[in-house]
């Protein structure tokens, strides 16, 4: 059975909004033990936002990767895992294959998607200068990051389920393109 991609995308955006606002201004006291954790520092707020969204993505990435590979034999080589991620898994979640993959053959991969679906509808107010330039300033990069923590988690979770324990980071300076950096924890 299928649902529309839009309802998932809208749901995720609401989740991001919820996490961001609940981290920066918890309203009434929620649970007793959380009171002393009221976070004032924006850097800390960012870390917690990132952790919450990334971990949620991680859980889901793991489960999905498990489900979609249970009929296949275990992947033997890392290159097969990465290929599955960049083609099958990416298509499942984001509707297309990745556009570019680079590796140093020692546990680091850089995955580039020129038209990343979660970022396709995202757009900042026009500053009046160059209509064709979609480059982001520092502040805008920070805002876009919030929408990328969850996908990072998805990738990290999927890789973990398939046998690669890695850190996943993402950079976006020109929507809707973005670049994921995957560094296997075993690499040096």
């Amino acid at each position: 059975m299928s649902v529309s991609e839009s309802i998932w995308s809208l749901l995720l955006n609401e989740f991001v909004n919820y996490v961001v606002s609940s981290v920066s201004e918890p309203s009434e006291p929620t649970k007793e033990e959380n009171n002393e954790d009221f976070i004032n520092d924006p850097e800390d707020q960012k870390k917690i936002t990132k952790a919450k969204l990334s971990n949620a993505g991680y859980q889901i990435g793991q489960k999905l990767a498990d489900r979609y590979t249970k009929d296949r034999s275990r992947f033997r080589e890392q290159v097969d895992i990465i290929r599955f991620l960049c083609k099958d898994f990416w298509t499942l979640l984001f509707g297309k294959n990745v556009d570019n993959l680079k590796t140093n053959h020692r546990g680091m991969w850089i995955i580039r998607d020129e038209n990343f679906r979660p970022l396709r509808n995202l757009s900042f107010p026009f500053d009046g200068k160059n209509l064709k330039k979609f480059d982001l300033n520092e502040n805008q990069i920070q805002i876009v990051q919030r929408f990328l923590y969850f996908p990072c988690g998805l990738i990290r979770g999927a890789l973990s389920a398939l046998g690669i324990d890695a850190d996943v980071d993402v950079h976006c300076s020109l929507i809707p393109a973005c670049e994921f950096t995957v560094i296997s924890k075993e690499s040096n």
Partner: peptide, 10 residues
């Protein structure tokens, strides 16, 4: 629909 209503920043 896509670039205004579904834009989370709008």
């Amino acid at each position: 629909t896509n670039y205004v209503m579904k834009n989370p920043l709008y």
